[in-house]
Design a protein around this nucleic acid. Structure first.
Length: 835
RNA sequence: GCCGCUGUGGCGGAAUUGGCAGACGCACUUGACUCAAAAUCAAGCGGGUAACACCGUGCCGGUUCGAGUCCGGCCAGCGGCACCA
């Protein structure tokens, strides 16, 4: 079919040929014509939207806010994979609409940031221009989905009326002490030529472009997300999110309980504080390791060790993240100095090694080789003594070949702690240490503060002025937005300066506080800045006084259902939670979690699970499929390819299946609609069962089986219609409503063909009656020793005796042994156990 | 290395609380219609057998009248974290 089509398309009037062919009338029957139907209803909806606008909302109806992650306007347009999430959220929105909810289903553009900017650079056009073009193109493609989007709510992160508030939030954070400047070696992508947040480094590589991330010492704007670590962690409990995402965030925040212990340096009036989660093993500490970047690292060297120590510190600073991670074998250098174990006075050597991270804990650790794998490896390599302090199964391990890391066993070689259970001591030790005055109980997080500035052009300018007298002064709130200036050269410089730094007339300004000459901050915000709060703006996007009015926020927010890929688990979803909590703290909104329920849809891939991309040449565009099969068929096929939460390989051929289904349903409608068929008992039963099945599958988000359910019932009804000549009107009406979230144009046409003049979306979701679903006669398998030997038909109400008697009769010739047990599970099975 | 998820026909995938494994669809085969093709309709479609029997849900074992489903032990693939002390 497709190849014939493409052959026909080579003629100039191919579309007209196809159109007339499909419009043709075969006999007296009108053939399903998706083009005519979809065009007709698209126009009708344009005139009379099925979901009323915000302002028409009676405010009495319950609302449902369904949202999918907004796209960035890439130059490649949408492929069938993008469709999936949009179809899922639209199906859910329309289902909620049928249940009587007022639906908020907006769409917008995440248009600042690297993808848009890199595309612009590649094409040699200004990002503002290419972004606007790409938005227009993708908007056209998105309209093909026929989703319930309310374009009056549209937002665009590059619109000054939007980024005014992105900047406003930053100013508020600055005033709250949550945004601060810091100079330190940050993750730097040499290809994107910008600093990156920790979350944007995946396996040592840039999340965007895959280039190896290096370190660069830069002055940076940071957001103190760590201050929210506990709340970000604890509030996960109240979210209806996939466990997988909750776990990823939990691991990323990485809270651990332990103790800081102060080790005096031998012969010096200094101490080194270490962080440990295993203070119970303190007696087993036989050495100490500092990160090469530790502030005391250099000064601990003696005359004999100085050269080696300085070389090691220098070498470490030259290693990239990837190098440092991939080093299989531990390296290190002895400083020549010793520390005193504050518990037992033991003198332990102080080493430097890059397996200790400078920015976690205190940048220094005590090492207990007997009970830590890394310490064991290090001690073995450098011949450092190993002292066991936990007895496994009551005794010391002889000839230790690996560390014993379980916290289960009895303490030994541990002075007054001897004989205690290690698991108990692990909990008590921090407090004991605190009482002794040699340390304190503490917690630590893997989460780091957020590196928030980017040395790129296409982002929100950070609204800060650097004044020689006043320091960092925020741009006054009434002067926002601070507009991104137009610039001729917007390519990244790679020097650590943003292209904005080259615009003197923009950079030079007056200090808002004292009026003296000052300079503007030239870094811009990351793409996440806009996407961390955009969902709040939809419901009040024209408000020029507030980010969102409290009235509208209270009424419409937060988001009930959020749909997006799992790739945002620790980026967008963590940042959005942080922003929401901050806005809650300053009273902008009255909730502190943005997304009540989260659904992660799986990715659509090309053959063999390869991600669709232009460079791989495996991108499938929805445009041809919409033209050849229709929006309704594609919508249904997007769901039919597999469980929505799992990845699925795209195969064009499968769409024929759903298209044939719609054609068969159409033919059933055409055969039945003018016949006034009286419903048989079987039709009524099927109708109730169908409502039950479709509804329960939809509720459990098993959207692929909803589609197969439609096919199953359609097949059954077609069989039935062969006997009766058609299907009753009520059953057909029920199908039209049930299928309306999935194939909205088809449903509307079906509804109209059945004589209705109002939209099907006002029909209301059908209900079922379990009594009507019951069958009088049921088919039930009869087994001998668990193997099916016959299938019999009995009354659904049959007693155990009657059922078993009927079952035995059916397999009488096989009942040759002694029956030792007879099992009847009502309506399920008969099993005769024989010897 | 640690944590999580997933293993079912040629393929995508179905199987409430354990109860006829393979629904639904794709592909394929055959037949009808057609000069022919497409479309459509009808039949078939895990392996095995002439037909039964029998064997089949990654592998090994267990519980049970009965296991894709529960338990124990492995194997493979995918994903997350990755020296976080």
């Amino acid at each position: 079919m497709l190849s014939v089509r493409s052959w026909l398309r080579s003629f100039s009037d191919a579309d007209e040929i196809m159109e007339s062919e499909e419009m043709s009338i075969m006999g007296t029957k009108i053939v399903y014509n998706h083009r005519a139907i979809e065009k007709k209803w698209r126009e009708k909806w344009e005139e009379n939207p099925v979901n009323p606008k915000v302002d028409d909302n009676g405010k009495k109806k319950p609302k449902y806010y369904c949202l999918d992650m907004f796209p960035y306007p890439s130059g490649n347009g949408l492929h069938v994979g993008h469709w999936r999430g949009y179809v899922i959220s639209d199906v859910w929105s329309r289902y909620k609409l049928q249940q009587g909810y007022y639906i908020i289903h907006p769409m917008g553009w995440d248009a600042f940031g690297l993808p848009a900017e890199n595309y612009a650079i590649k094409m040699g056009v200004h990002p503002a221009k290419s972004t606007a073009e790409n938005v227009a193109n993708i908007k056209r493609q998105i309209n093909d989905i026929a989703a319930l989007y309310d374009w009056d709510m549209e937002v665009n992160t590059t619109d000054p009326n939007f980024y005014k508030w992105t900047q406003w939030i930053f100013v508020k954070m600055f005033k709250a002490g949550l945004a601060y400047e810091k100079e330190f070696p940050i993750n730097w992508c040499p290809s994107c030529k910008t600093g990156l947040a920790n979350e944007e480094v995946v396996n040592g590589k840039c999340e965007r472009c895959g280039a190896e991330v290096t370190k660069k010492n830069l002055r940076q704007w940071m957001l103190r997300i760590t201050k929210y670590a506990d709340r970000l962690l604890n509030d996960l409990d109240k979210l209806d999110w996939p466990e997988k995402v909750k776990k990823m965030q939990t691991d990323w925040i990485g809270k651990s309980y332990g103790a800081e212990v102060d080790f005096p340096v031998d012969g010096r009036n200094e101490k080194i504080t270490v962080y440990t989660t295993r203070p119970d093993t303190l007696y087993g500490a036989t050495f100490m390791v500092l990160a090469p970047e530790h502030e005391l690292a250099k000064s601990l060297a003696t005359d004999e060790t100085r050269d080696a120590v300085e070389k090691y510190i220098y070498d470490s600073s030259m290693k990239s993240n990837v190098d440092r991670m991939q080093d299989k074998e531990k390296t290190g250098v002895f400083t020549g100095s010793y520390a005193i174990n504050p518990l037992n006075g033991a003198k332990v050597p102080i080493w430097l090694s890059d397996y200790v991270l400078a920015d976690y804990g205190t940048g220094a650790i005590m090492c207990v080789p007997a009970h830590d794998d890394r310490d064991f490896e290090f001690a073995t390599k450098f011949n450092i003594p190993i002292i066991q302090v936990i007895a496994k199964d009551g005794k010391e391990i002889e000839n230790m070949t690996e560390a014993y890391t379980d916290a289960s066993g009895t303490m030994i070689n541990s002075g007054e702690w001897n004989g205690m259970e290690s698991a108990v001591l692990k909990k008590e030790a921090p407090h004991i240490i605190e009482e002794k005055g040699i340390g304190r109980a503490t917690v630590n997080y893997k989460l780091r503060d957020w590196v928030f500035s980017r040395q790129r052009y296409w982002g929100e300018p950070i609204p800060i002025v650097h004044c020689p007298d006043c320091g960092c002064v925020p741009v006054p709130e009434e002067e926002l937005p601070l507009r991104l200036p137009d610039v001729e050269s917007y390519e990244p410089t790679g020097t650590g300066e943003s292209p904005l730094a080259a615009i003197d007339e923009w950079v030079n300004c007056k200090c808002p506080k004292c009026g003296k000459p000052a300079k503007r901050e030239t870094n811009t915000m990351p793409q996440w800045a806009g996407s961390s709060w955009y969902f709040l703006r939809y419901v009040d996007n024209h408000n020029d006084k507030e980010l969102v009015s409290r009235e509208k926020a209270d009424e419409y927010l937060p988001v009930d259902m959020y749909i997006g890929g799992v790739e945002h688990a620790v980026l967008h979803l963590l940042y959005s939670r942080f922003y929401t909590k901050f806005l809650y703290d300053i009273g902008v909104i009255d909730f502190d979690e943005p997304f009540h329920k989260l659904f992660n849809q799986g990715m659509i891939t090309g053959k063999n699970g390869i991600k669709m991309s232009k460079s791989k040449g495996n991108v499938v565009s929805p445009d041809d499929l919409v033209r050849d099969y229709g929006c309704d068929s594609l919508r249904m096929y997007e769901l039919f390819v597999g469980p929505p939460e799992l990845d699925a390989e795209w195969d064009d051929r499968g769409i024929d299946g759903v298209n044939r289904f719609l054609k068969r349903l159409w033919n059933l409608l055409m055969d039945s609609k003018d016949q006034d068929i009286q419903p048989t008992k079987e039709m009524i039963r099927l109708r109730h069962k169908m409502v039950y099945d479709i509804t329960t599958r939809l509720e459990s988000f098993s959207l692929n089986t909803v589609i197969s359910g439609f096919m199953e019932y359609n097949n059954k009804l077609i069989e039935l219609a062969k006997k009766t000549g058609g299907i009753d009107k009520e059953t057909l009406e029920t199908i039209a409503v049930l299928i309306s979230p999935f194939a909205p144009h088809f449903a509307e046409e079906m509804w109209e063909q059945l004589g209705h003049t109002e939209t099907v979306f006002k029909a209301g979701w059908p209900t079922y009656d379990e009594n009507e679903m019951k069958e009088d006669e049921i088919q039930i398998p009869v087994q001998i020793n668990g193997k099916t030997r016959a299938v019999i038909s009995i009354s659904a109400e049959a007693s155990k005796e009657d059922a078993i008697a009927a079952g035995k009769e059916a397999i009488a010739d096989k009942l040759t042994g002694n029956v030792i047990k007879e099992i009847y599970v009502p309506k399920k099975i008969i099993n005769i156990v024989m010897k």
